[in-house]
Design a protein around this nucleic acid. Structure first.
Lengths: 304, 304
DNA sequence: TTACATACATAGGTAAATTCTATACAGGGG
DNA sequence: CCCCTGTATAGAATTTACCTATGTATGTAA
């Protein structure tokens, strides 16, 4: 059986008060209750804590003195626990863990978190840079508390609020004749080699864009990172389609890349804030969610 | 209200087991009991500890993880308390506090404690060298757990076991003609200056020796220590009566002193082991009491 | 010496907490 | 679609905690 902290508190108060009756008065309970608690401790631990001196009160025994010291220690530790838990639950401070979709992290999330930190320096934002599959499973297991991502493969149990809409754009090498046009038809891409953004769920989205137009694309390259796709295109290895647009047109390859709107009205991706319905929104999380809801639409409108 | 360690233990076990049902099995209690305990914690601290994943079990939230760490800490502290208390109550080790009457300490108690330490080095014997009044009040308040002293002014509530009997002896300066006799009558002392061993209760005993013989002694000097009395007598300032006999006849004054039996059959003092009836004898105390009961009679018989 | 005051212990009854069994509800797998 | 696994809820039984009333011990003042 576990230690009875209540009885310990009664004992310590009695030792300090010098009489059980006085301890009971200070504790606002009856004298027999305190008396019983002390006897319970003495019985349980087989220790005599006090000598009862008739009409005077109680005197600590030698054993009782040692017991008192340890009881005080444990009670202070339990008070510390209480305090720590209060900090966890009732303050805005502490950590929050936010999932961010790989392709969104460098453009949107980086700006978002930077601004949030400036406004709420006491909240530590832990960003997990993940693909859509890991974001979804992280949300269901609780390892991710909130996610900034696309509305791809959303499951029941999760709720999404849309923050921005990103239509797909074509990526072309500058030397491609299509790059002279203000907009491009997706059908013009069918004959060119295609560089696929190859991430779980994401790849299915790009596939679907072609399928809905009854096009079978030539997939020549599959890349796992946004920057790889852009560099491949910039190097003239093919064309691609992406929804996220970095702040500059140069790529790591040293060559620039051209982005053009698509003439057809293709299904856009939505930037959403995702959360698990089963997870209570504690203050720090709500704060971040509110902040993101206000800031992300502005970020996307002025993609600088 | 105090932290509920029981609920904390259920919570920790659940976090470790991964499901509430498994935790209940390991704890040998029903699943609803564990479930209720966790909900109680969540309600009390306003924290969501787990995400319930249907048919899978439970997953810790971020808050739950912080809570878990602190709960583990507090539980380990409570286990430590438990262990410390066991050490206090169930082992022979630790301290015991023994009162010793001033006049007995150098002769009997010193030998006794020395021998005891050799046999039980893990028990720390704390000797309080006190007069009879302080021994009696120390016993009633618990500051003294056991006392080696004389059977003077014993009160109800204390129990004494006799270890040795010490008849009174006369102390004379060597130049006093009475020192040539093998024994002395107390009546011969009436005309001489008397040096009184002046300690609470002790002084009353010496007074009573004269009063029972219908003698009114000439009290010229009152000393508070045994050695002072002996030195006064050795210096020829008077005679005295004492029951304790050191191992040598010299005194701090540089002069020797002579002890002689008293011809009349005067009430002797008894060396007793005193204890408070209200104080449980824990193992270390019993050990010391037994040891003293066996050793002190032998010590007194061979006063070397 | 008696009556009073103080302090702890005990007895008996009530309210709260803990536990149990039985059952409802949710979701994944054959 | 049914069965299995896991959590939540309902209601009853048990244990724990607490209270009031009373008993016991002892020191003190009349």
């Amino acid at each position: 059986m576990d230690v009875n902290l209540r009885a310990l508190r009664y004992f310590v108060m009695s030792a300090e008060a010098g009489t059980i009756s006085e301890a009971a008065r200070r504790l606002n309970i009856s004298q027999p209750s305190v008396s019983a608690a002390i006897q319970q401790l003495e019985d349980l631990y087989q220790v005599q804590l006090f000598i009862r001196v008739p009409t005077k009160g109680i005197e600590l025994t030698t054993e009782g003195l040692g017991f008192l010291e340890r009881a005080r220690l444990l009670l202070s530790q339990s008070d510390q626990f209480r305090h720590d838990v209060d900090v966890i639950s009732h303050t805005l401070g502490g950590e929050i863990t936010v999932g961010s979709f790989l392709n969104i992290t460098p453009t949107i999330t980086a700006e978002l978190v930077g601004a949030f930190q400036k406004n709420h320096p006491n909240i530590q934002v832990n960003i997990l840079d993940l693909d859509q599959h890991d974001i979804l499973s992280g949300l269901t297991t609780g390892k991710v508390e909130l996610a900034v991502t696309f509305n791809l493969a959303l499951q029941s149990g999760l709720s999404a609020s849309t923050l921005a809409t990103l239509p797909p754009h074509v990526l072309l090498p500058p030397e491609d004749p299509l790059s002279d046009e203000p907009s491009v038809s997706i059908h013009d891409l069918a004959t060119r080699p295609f560089v696929l953004m190859d991430l779980p769920h994401t790849r299915d989205y790009f596939h679907s864009l072609f399928l809905e137009q009854r096009i079978v694309p030539r997939i020549d390259f599959k890349c796992h990172s946004l920057e790889a796709v852009r560099s491949f295109v910039a190097s003239g290895l093919g064309v691609s389609i992406l929804n996220t647009r970095p702040a500059f047109e140069d790529t790591y390859s040293g060559h620039p890349v051209v982005m053009r709107p698509i003439r057809e009205n293709l299904r856009p991706l939505q930037v959403v804030l995702l959360r698990n319905n089963r997870l209570r929104m504690r203050p720090a999380l709500s704060l971040f969610a509110d902040f993101a809801s206000r800031m992300i639409p502005a970020l996307v409108k002025t993609p600088r």
